[in-house]
Amino acid sequence: MIVITIAVALIVAGTFFFVTATLGLLRFPDFYTRMHAAGKGDTLGALLSLAGLALYNLNNGFSVEAILISMKILIIALFIFIANPTATHAITKAGLVCSVKPWEKKESSK
């Protein structure tokens, strides 16, 4: 029972970070700042949700199949953990090379 509670708490926390990432994507003024929201929020949201799923899967006993499935989920989480910052970095560099000007505070007070 306590395992299920922890798993549900992890999934809900992951969903919360997905919500903030999406809201940040909609609200921030330029694409560098949107990158902050999308790159970080999605990484942590996916990590927490997948960890919660792996924990929930182990709840029904430790058969070989259950352990294999949990390992698969953890490998997907590891891949996202490595790949997402790299993709973020690639897009930011594309913006820098294209010399997109970053949004600054002074411009906003027009």
Binding site: G14, F18, A21, T22, L25, F31, R34, M35, A38, D42, T43, G45, A46, S49, L50, I76, I80, N84, A87, I91
Partner: peptide, 13 residues
């Protein structure tokens, strides 16, 4: 591109 990448992460979950 950012939006598509974010959608992809959500789709994985």
């Amino acid at each position: 591109i950012i939006a598509i990448s974010a959608i992809g992460t959500k789709t994985t979950v």
